[in-house]
Design a protein around this nucleic acid. Structure first.
Length: 706
RNA sequence: GGGCAGUUAGCUCAGCUGGUAGAGCAUUCGCUUGACGUGCGAAAGGUCAUUGGUUCAAGUCCAAUACUGCCCACCA
């Protein structure tokens, strides 16, 4: 008899996947209860990290479990065009390779470069997903910039506009001076840095500010209505000497939002460059004076300071104030600086015409569907985080002044540029002036706009007659990282309610961040990235999948190291060898019975001893509990228990026992039933294992149990 | 300033609806040349962060405290 290999050859995994794919094993069966999962589309930038691998492992394990139990399973793969992210990378590429900027290369040529980039990376993303063994339906693969997605995005924009949920207006937005685009609130993070608080004399009133250069855009002084120190000035105009030595006048207003404790209790109001000041300006009908431009330099409104960078302007204005003895004092003060998450630039708040989604109009509904359990979060604690986000929600700025993204179906009248028509096609003649050819909006949409339509745009929306939409929507589960709760999950809920009047999914499983072994975030700059593809090649995809699932608790961060991988690599080897033993010990018996593959019915006439009865009972109990764990999404617990049961109860105890009996019996006949039970038990366990380690299961059946 | 989470063996972490603490790795001892890039058997190691409460019974529920991490927020 030829020697069987003593370990699973994971280099064959890709071949196994190819066979599955050819057999079209992953398309929905068309019958049974529906289980639908739309996979989070990874960025086409091509970098898959361990978080992606974890997502795939969880989704695939669940999908395989449901599929083998007769569910009608849809697992739909896709990829995201990643607007700003991709644009930054392509800009970097042409800067390095061609030594030119995107402005030099021009929009048309630049987009060509992006398309080439995508063509290069998209296949990589697909093959990575395959490498992890994900049993998704490739015939339904979608990309956020494919033609159908474009139609969905345009339609969504138009419908929301019709409903009054999308509007255009000039508001204070987050401006990234480096990328030259507006950003949403969620794309801005804040860092605390040491700074100064300047006490500047405005005649009789001294105000405290961290940003003296915005002084040029002041249009009022605000104080608290009950502040006795300033009561006499409220409603009047104060006159004072300004930085240029000139006399200047500003009105004094009273507003309860002013903090009496801070600084001097008096606030200089710069409506064009600060959120609170902006609100004050709206409320008190103040003029707005934009002194900082989109290029991050002072505008002509800034007079003598025009053209200076913000830093230069600050320096000069402080010097000028000093000259006129207008600085009372300077103290150290920690300031919160807004940073653009993508580019790292310091974000400026400035007035700019942009498109917005009126998310605030849907937030009550968005709150309700979660509090009423129409959507369940796991872990539940994230519901509070979600509610908190909704409570603080502002409308969502969706226009971006970049090039790579979905275009906006809005057309301006050339004669009256303030007039706009929103439509799928550019009107042949302008319905406003009946004269011009109209110009399309040059901006593109925030990447997340198309992402938020994903649960239904992938299923055929806006085509209401789509079978997939009818059958699989709302989807059963969304599995993703807790870090994109706001960016994505919350907005999917809002957009789905606004456009389909349904929830997008019934369950959300959030996994936590995967950290390195020291508990640090993995990032390229730190050089502590573990590449899941390399790990899969080194240890096998099954071991990788199990190591990620085994260490994951919903919502909690996990420290990850190759040590965890070793545990499951050994588990794979253990399963292989237990199967190898059973195969060898039962080969002749098995053949003589000519059992058909998959027939796991145990002959009822077999005479079982107590030990065997006990084991089979324990096995049945384990199977029941295991399925319960899976149904509750406790995959980590389910896997750990499987590990224990297989290794201890099956391999070390039961298998060793039967091995002894079979050896004793020597002759085949004497141990026939022991062999049958052993084989039967193994096959039952392999069924469960196949959810977690599909390649291994396939390999065992191909090589050992065939 | 507000919120959320974590704190369990040396390390990494499990522990569902409360009932005399578990795994992997590391350590110690023994065994094993035919399933097992090893495995098997055994040992050692924890007052489950602290304090108080509920209970016949708490790592598990409640309250407070401490430390760590994360998120949110218009103190200019």
């Amino acid at each position: 008899m030829e020697e069987l290999p003593t370990k699973f050859d994971h280099t064959k995994e890709a071949d196994i996947y190819r066979r599955w794919e050819e057999a079209k094993a992953f398309e929905p069966s068309g019958h049974g209860e529906v289980f639908s999962v739309i996979m989070p589309p990874p960025n086409v930038t091509g970098d898959l990290h361990l978080g992606h691998a974890l997502t795939y492992a969880v989704e695939d394990t669940l999908a395989r479990n449901k599929r083998r139990r007769g569910f009608n399973v849809l697992l739909l793969p896709g990829a995201d065009h990643a607007g700003i992210g991709t644009q930054i990378l392509v800009e970097k590429k042409i800067r390095e390779e061609k030594k030119i900027s995107r402005h030099e290369i021009g929009k048309k040529q630049f987009l060509q470069e992006v398309e080439e980039w995508v063509e290069h990376y998209l296949p990589r993303v697909k093959s990575a997903i395959k490498r992890f063994g994900v049993s998704c339906d490739w015939s339904r693969f979608r990309y956020t910039m494919d033609n159908h997605s474009k139609l969905a995005v345009q339609t969504a924009f138009i419908e929301l506009h019709k409903k009054g949920l999308i509007y255009r207006g000039t508001y204070l937005v987050n401006w990234d001076p480096k990328l030259q685009t507006a950003l949403s609130d969620d794309e801005v993070s804040y860092q605390e840095i040491p700074g100064q608080l300047y006490f500047i004399k405005y005649g009789p009133i001294t105000v405290a500010t961290t940003r003296p250069e915005t002084k040029l855009g002041d249009t009022a002084i605000a104080v608290h209505p009950h502040d006795l120190r300033y009561e006499q000035f409220v409603g009047t105009e104060i006159e004072f000497t300004n930085e240029s030595g000139q006399k200047q006048k500003l009105p004094v207003i009273a507003d309860a939002s002013v903090d009496r404790q801070f600084g001097t209790g008096a606030l200089k109001v710069t409506p064009a460059h600060d959120p609170l000041d902006y609100q004050l300006g709206q409320k008190h009908k103040l003029e707005s004076k934009s002194v900082i431009g989109t290029d991050g330099k002072m505008t002509t409104e800034a007079g003598a300071y025009a053209g200076l960078t913000i830093a230069e302007a600050r320096e000069k204005i402080l010097a000028d104030l000093q000259t006129h003895n207008l600085i009372e004092k300077i103290i150290d003060h920690t300031i919160r600086q807004p940073i653009a998450e993508r580019s790292g630039a310091i974000v400026e708040k400035l007035l700019s015409p942009q498109w917005f989604v009126k998310t605030t109009a849907i937030k009550d509904q968005a709150h309700q569907v979660v509090s009423s359990k129409q959507i369940q979060f796991l872990p539940k604690s994230l519901e509070k985080v979600y509610f908190n986000w909704l409570d603080n929600l502002h409308d969502w700025c969706i226009s971006r002044q970049i090039w790579w993204g979905h275009s906006i179906p809005a057309y301006y009248c050339d004669n009256q540029p303030e007039k706009v028509v929103v439509a799928l096609e550019k009107p042949a003649t302008c319905p406003i002036c009946n004269d011009c050819r109209m110009t399309q909006d040059q901006d593109v949409l925030d990447t997340w706009f198309s992402s938020t339509l994903w649960p239904f745009s992938t299923l055929g929306w806006p085509d209401q007659t789509s079978n997939d939409l009818k059958e699989f929507f709302p989807t059963s589960l969304m599995e993703t990282g807790a870090d994109i709760l706001f960016f994505w999950v919350a907005r999917m809920i809002i957009m789905s309610l606004a456009l389909t009047e349904q929830v997008p999914f019934k369950n959300v499983y959030f996994h936590g961040l995967i950290l390195d072994k020291d508990g640090k975030k993995m990032s390229k700059s730190k050089g502590n990235i573990l590449d899941p593809l390399k790990l899969a090649d080194q240890y096998g995809a099954d071991a990788l999948r199990m190591s990620l699932i085994g260490g994951n608790s919903p919502g909690l961060a996990q420290k990850y190291s190759e040590q965890k991988l070793l545990k499951y690599r050994n588990f794979v080897t253990k399963i292989w060898n237990a199967s190898r033993f059973v195969a060898e010990a039962t080969a002749s018996q098995h053949a003589s019975h000519q059992q058909s593959a998959g027939n796991q019915k145990l002959n009822a006439n077999l005479d079982l001893d107590d030990r065997e009865k006990a084991f089979l009972k324990k096995l049945a109990g384990f199977e029941t509990l295991h399925q319960k764990r899976i149904d509750q999404f406790y995959l980590n617990v389910a896997l750990e228990e499987l590990y224990e049961f297989f290794w201890q109860d099956f391999a070390s105890d039961f298998l060793e026992y039967e091995k002894g009996v079979i050896r004793e019996a020597k002759g085949l006949e004497g141990s026939k039933h022991n062999q049958a039970i052993l084989r039967h038990s193994l096959e039952r366990l392999l069924v469960i294992i196949s959810d977690f380690a599909p390649f291994l299961n396939q390999g065992i059946h191909d090589t050992l149990l065939s």
